[in-house]
């Protein structure tokens, strides 16, 4: 289905400048390539540009300079609609604050990207049931977000990101609002999908625990990559 054999995700000379006050470079000349199936962890202190980088990689935000490519296709040549279509097929995003739709149940939230992609309803139901089972939420399928705990909401958000079988998942502080036990569960979930379904993960986190699951570490400071480390953590 995908003929591209280069890095699944890449960015070149990526910069993001905010013209506030004296001006601020949130990112400066970032070069990054993520290979298919990799589990990349991006770490760094607060304000180092981690979330900005992830948002630009997800096509949510636009860089001031530079280019992002997903499966070889340049974001700069895509409209907002093209990016939306790309996200629902190839790229899932997990937020720190879950961002579930409060009007929909857990199952409906998970099924939403697939329904937007006009997938077959039977396939959607089957995938939703599978994801609910994998994330341990089968009993909570018909509960609304407000009726779920933080950990459960984050698992729903993860299931939603994984639902259309994207080739890559970007997660921004996915355990930032969870206790340590829940954080462990989320990390295991990511690793499971990374290993079983071969999905690529790029996770922004402060959580050292993720290093046990990651095979590449990128460390950012003041908008620049200051460390690239291969961890070879395929466990």
């Amino acid at each position: 289905m995908n003929e591209w054999h280069g890095p699944i995700l890449a960015c070149h000379e990526l910069s993001k400048f905010y013209a506030v006050g004296d001006g601020l470079f949130a990112l400066s000349n970032v070069e990054l390539e993520v290979e298919r199936g990799q589990f990349v962890v991006i770490m760094g202190p607060s304000g180092s540009g981690k979330s900005t980088l992830l948002n630009i990689l997800g096509g949510i935000d636009r860089p001031t300079h530079g280019e992002v490519l997903l499966n070889g296709r340049k974001y700069s040549r895509m409209s907002e609609d093209d990016l939306a279509v790309m996200r629902r097929r190839e790229l899932g995003i997990v937020f720190q604050f879950f961002n579930l739709l409060p009007e929909l149940t857990a199952a409906e939230n998970i099924g939403m990207p697939m329904r937007l992609a006009r997938m077959d309803e039977r396939d959607i139901m089957s995938r939703v049931m599978h994801l609910l089972e994998v994330t341990g939420l089968t009993a909570r399928a018909n509960h609304y977000p407000v009726e779920l705990s933080g950990g459960e909401q984050q698992r729903v958000a993860i299931a939603r990101a994984l639902a259309p079988r994207p080739s890559i998942v970007l997660a921004d502080e996915p355990t930032g609002n969870l206790d340590s036990k829940m954080s462990q569960e989320v990390m295991k979930l990511f690793k499971r999908f990374n290993q079983e379904e071969g999905q690529t993960f790029v996770v922004v986190t402060h959580e050292d625990g993720f290093l046990d699951y990651a095979d590449t570490l990128i460390r950012l400071s003041d908008g620049e990559i200051v460390e690239r480390k291969v961890l070879n953590a395929k466990k």
């Binding site: 609609d81 995003i93 937007l116």
Partner: peptide
């Protein structure tokens, strides 16, 4: 913000 979220999870302008 909700419309932005819909866009993030794949909603086009038509949606």
């Amino acid at each position: 913000r909700k419309i932005g979220l819909l866009r993030v999870i794949g909603a086009t302008g038509k949606d």
